[in-house]
Design a binder for these strands. Sequence first.
RNA 1: CGGGGAGUGGCGCAGCCUGGUAGCGCGCCAGUUUUGGGAACUGGAUGUCGCAGGUUCGAAUCCUGUCUCCCCGACCA
Length: 574
Amino acid sequence: MRYSQYLLPTLKETPGDAEVISHQLMARAGMIRKVAAGIYDYLPLGLRVIRKVENIVREEMNRAGAIELLMPSVVPADLWEETGRWQQYGKELLRIKDRKDTEFCFGPTHEEVVTEIVRGTVNSYRQLPINLYQIQTKFRDEIRPRFGLMRGREFIMKDAYSFDLDDAGASASYEKMYQAYRRIFERCGLKFRAVEADTGNIGGSSSHEFMVLAETGEDDIVSCDACEYAANVEKAELRPSTTLASATQPLVEVDTPNRKTIEEVSAFLKVAATQTVKTLIVQNERKETLAVLLRGDHDLNEIKLCRLLDCNEIEMASEETVQAVTGAPSGFAGPVGLKVRIIADQEVQGLSDYVIGANALDTHFVGANHGRDFAVETFADLRQAQAGDSCPRCEGALEVWRGIEVGHVFKLGTKYSEAMGATVLDDQGQDRTLVMGCYGIGVGRTAAAAIEQNHDANGIIWPMPLAPFQIIISVLNPNAAEVLEAGETLYAQLLERGIEVLLDDRDERPGSKFKDADLLGIPLRVTVGARGLKEQCYELQNRRSGERAMLPMVEAATQLAAQVHSALNAEAGG
RNA sequence: CGGGGAGUGGCGCAGCCUGGUAGCGCGCCAGUUUUGGGAACUGGAUGUCGCAGGUUCGAAUCCUGUCUCCCCGACCA
């Protein structure tokens, strides 16, 4: 591609609405343009990267035995009504009507559609297992899209769905996808972790998320420093606590004027936060109000609480509710004398003689003990894991990372196949409900995550497998005939060798060309200028390492092609 | 949706408080001189100041409404 004839609008300045580095650099490098909140144009350079990711995904899915197809983006409401999701799925589902007022949605995910395909075309266990996938534009009307391609409303996703006769088969299909995903992200040159995850409202029994490690990630994940255990904090189990407490101090009411938070109270009473217990008054969607006790320095994990209570949503009670339930303004809630259900994190069980709210303005208790002073209905694992916690599987300790979720694999079970009557005949001639799995990869998000992990002050540094171009030839003075000709010659030789090369033949000053080359993040830059030509050489610079080398003109194309191929293989290996 | 902020040439911003009919930098076009890390000079083009009302002799500026965008929370590839 000739730069002078390409559409590559680079920006010197960062657009004001771009917050994270990947968004800033994608905008500056002329990869994307915003059309509306969470909706983007993929400009030519951006599309090239998207295609790179797609092709890696496609190759690995095919290798794992999955079959590509393409389902419609616009899906009739009937299908979604079969599974009840037309009602369940909230405002994220973009609902539209056609001219006859028939309802449709723009598909945010395709369990219903694919299940409909399989129920109509797969009738025998002999056709199993089968795994169907597509790479397609999805739409989810997110409440708050942000960070460019990281969380768009419209985005490109690879979604795959496996169908098996039984759980064992489904587990095997799941394992295949898990391994395929590892290969995909390794080939993309990304540092990532596969972590145990919550299944959310897609449903199903177990799942893993593939997290690219990056500070700007929106998820917290934990991993053990000794074994393989890794999980999203939403999901991370904590080791069961077995210690039991016994009281040694009497319950005494103390004044804590204006001290509401754990920090304020523990500082005021000169007690460690670990020796305090906080009482959260919460409500679920059924408007049940209850009190949750946690050690002062711990945080509530709402997902664990939801699971315990068999509800979908937990929120902190309003000030009025707190006042009504505890008889005091928030900040002083405690379990003593409370009339609502009281449940506690398991680690409260091992505490004794702690500080706790007294349900009266500016007052706390010291020397509080459950069992003696109040009763706890249930102890359970309810808190968020944090750095330094013991691993639930071994003697190691947990570390905390930030991650970007680029892929997610689920065991779905029969949730959709049962609702939609997707069955096959087994070898006994009996109807069997198919056991499903589903597997997603955010294509644009993967590209964005790659930038989060691979950039410097000058711009993007693409891993070779994702680079929109593998080599950029910067012709320093295209007005000098012999310089332009030397550039053109190399350009032609590289194209012949199948290398993706961008020829910067613009009539710009050298500085601009170097800045743009760095910004775009092309892994190898060849400078063609009078200086090198005097010695019959091109000059090579590696974007990542900054290393430079003189390449004799006669062997340049061969050497460069070899470097590109070895970089591709290095990053594809492992 | 709750809380915070912002809409002014393609991009980044100033002007608004204290109303008088729009300015700076980058980019763009033409020319001259330049040419190894975002060149200099000269000349030029581009704005119904988000939209709709209102106040006023006069509104980018004040008032009301509305739309959009961004940030913090819930959601997720």
